[in-house]
Deep mutational scan, measured.
Amino acid sequence: RIRTTFTSAQLKELERVFAETHYPDIYTREELALKIDLTEARVQVWFQNRRAKFRK
């Protein structure tokens, strides 16, 4: 699998949801994935990585 490059619009939306909750449920992730045209798996991994970055 190649590395996913996020558009600024996708990042803006991901960060907006992250500001609300660091642990979005499956429904939130799936809805977000559809909205920004990514797979739910990519959204899930983005949140994992974002939480790791947040803890640092």
Rank of each mutant, 00 (worst) to 15 (best):
F47R: 01
D37H: 09
S8H: 09
E30R: 14
T39Q: 07
E31V: 11
T7L: 03
R55F: 11
L32P: 02
A9F: 10
T7Q: 02
A9Q: 12
V17C: 08
A41D: 12
T28R: 14
S8T: 07
A41Y: 08
T39R: 03
K35A: 10
R42S: 15
E40T: 06
L32R: 04
E40R: 03
Y23V: 03
E31H: 09
Q44A: 12
T5W: 09
V43L: 05
E30H: 09
E13I: 04
T28I: 08
E15L: 03
V43T: 02
N49D: 15
E13K: 00
Q44I: 06
T39A: 08
I2E: 15
Y23G: 03
N49W: 08
E13W: 06
E13H: 06
F6Q: 02
L32Q: 04
R51F: 03
H22L: 03
K56Y: 07
A41C: 07
A19M: 06
I2S: 13
L38R: 05
T5Q: 08
T39C: 08
A9D: 09
E31Y: 09
E31Q: 14
S8N: 08
I2Y: 12
L14S: 02
D37S: 11
I36H: 08
Y23S: 07
T28M: 07
K12F: 07
D37R: 08
P24Q: 03
Q48S: 11
R50H: 00
D25R: 01
E20Y: 10
D37Q: 09
D37P: 00
A19Y: 03
R3L: 12
A19W: 07
Q44Y: 09
R55H: 07
W46H: 00
V17W: 00
P24W: 02
A9H: 07
I36S: 06
F54Q: 13
T28K: 14
R50K: 09
Q48A: 14
R51E: 00
I26D: 10
A52T: 09
S8E: 13
S8I: 08
R42W: 12
D25M: 01
P24A: 02
A9S: 10
L32W: 02
A9L: 09
V45R: 11
L38P: 04
E20S: 10
V43C: 00
F54P: 09
R3C: 12
T21E: 08
H22Y: 01
Q10D: 04
L14E: 03
V43Q: 00
S8Y: 05
V45A: 13
Y27E: 15
Y27I: 14
P24D: 06
H22N: 06
E20V: 11
E40Y: 05
Q10W: 03
A52N: 15
Y27F: 12
F47W: 02
R51H: 01
L32A: 01
K56H: 08
T21C: 09
D37E: 11
R3E: 15
L34F: 12
P24T: 00
R1W: 07
R3F: 12
N49A: 14
T4I: 11
A52Y: 02
D37A: 08
E20K: 13
E40Q: 09
N49F: 08
F54I: 10
V43A: 04
F6W: 08
L38E: 14
R3V: 12
A41T: 11
D25S: 10
L11N: 08
L11H: 09
E20Q: 13
A19E: 14
P24G: 01
V45M: 15
W46S: 01
F18G: 03
T5K: 11
T7G: 03
E13V: 05
R50G: 01
Q48L: 07
R1C: 13
K53S: 14
R29W: 04
R55T: 13
F6G: 03
Q10E: 05
H22D: 07
Q10V: 02
V45W: 11
R50V: 00
T5F: 08
E30Y: 07
Q44W: 04
